[in-house]
Design a protein around this nucleic acid. Structure first.
Lengths: 171, 171
DNA sequence: AAAAATGTTTACAAAATAGTAAAGTATTTG
DNA sequence: CAAATACTTTACTATTTTGTAAACATTTTT
């Protein structure tokens, strides 16, 4: 489970454009140099971002790329999804249930419960951070779990529990 | 950003052994059949889990694998780390700062702030869920953010904020 | 209109991951 | 001790991801 190269560089390139503002413009060559990646790779990256509607391109001699929305209106979930697809798609079970016809953990699938929960958890984090947050250093730091109740007794393993997570913006 | 195949199947195989209990034993062939994967692939998978100390192997005619600790004492962070490495290692910046000598976003790196925060966030989730939690369907569901304060004014972008995240165990 | 600058597309090469195959080592059973 | 069973290791193939290259299309400038 890792951040892919495309995701990492995509965020960086988008931030570079975001700092230029919606009106500003930068060429592929400029972005590539600034981020230290090759021009062809930057081309590929920016094409993906353009098709996702995150940046706008102008061709021709005085062309270039600009960010298509204000940084505060672009969150990381949209960016990551554009660059690396969803964290967990519909085909996940079909793909990872092995070679059996139907998922062996059919019905109440415990693995899906925890991995689906993880995906939702991550999505929440990503959706909560905009490009503007990142630029201003105002991002969600990792959750610090306090008031973590002890595990429920074995005799009643399905008791619902609440636990408060204290998040703090770092700056 | 995805769950890798090794991680997915590794969790499943480990769960299969966990359901057998610390005393129980299962052969590669049995596990492979149960999970619908090939015997060679299950071999590779279980070898990784053994080297990580998560399962114990007994050779010979009446050999097989067993889980080396109680399910309540094995959390997902350990499993995921064993199967797919850490979410973000020390070389991350070196690897993804492009071809420049030093990271272009040196010092106060905004990208690292948000991605490091994400990694910590995910680690917290994984560390909070044990194999026993998964087996009993007692896993953390995705965070549902309530009391989300509005963004700070542009004039004071670095104001710290707290936001309460309500997590709920599903069952 | 020609040339230069710039984005677009397609194809290809390299590296990492996923999955398979086979030969080897250890233990039990008769 | 010999054969059967089961884990171990190494090597290999296939697929996906990463990154590069080159030809193409569009706009501006002269």
């Amino acid at each position: 489970m890792r951040i892919s190269a495309l995701e990492e560089y995509g965020i960086r390139c988008l931030l570079a454009l975001a700092e230029n503002g919606v009106r500003g413009q930068a060429s592929i060559a400029e972005i590539a140099e600034r981020e230290g990646i090759s021009v062809p790779y930057a081309s590929k990256l920016l094409a993906i971002l353009r098709k996702a509607g995150l940046v706008a391109a102008v061709r021709g001699r005085s062309g270039g790329f600009s960010i298509s929305r204000e940084p505060k209106d672009i969150n990381l979930l949209e960016v990551i999804t554009a660059l690396g697809g969803p964290l967990m798609d519909e085909e996940h079970c079909q793909k990872y249930s092995g070679q059996l016809e139907e998922c062996i953990h059919t019905g109440d699938c415990s693995v899906m419960n925890v991995l689906g929960g993880l995906a939702g958890y991550i999505s929440d984090y990503l959706a909560s951070n905009t490009l503007e947050d990142i630029m201003s250093g105002n991002v969600l730091n990792q959750a610090k779990q306090v008031n973590m109740n002890e595990k429920p007794a074995e005799s009643s393993p399905r008791v619902d529990r609440n636990l408060t997570v204290l998040n703090k913006r770092i700056g």
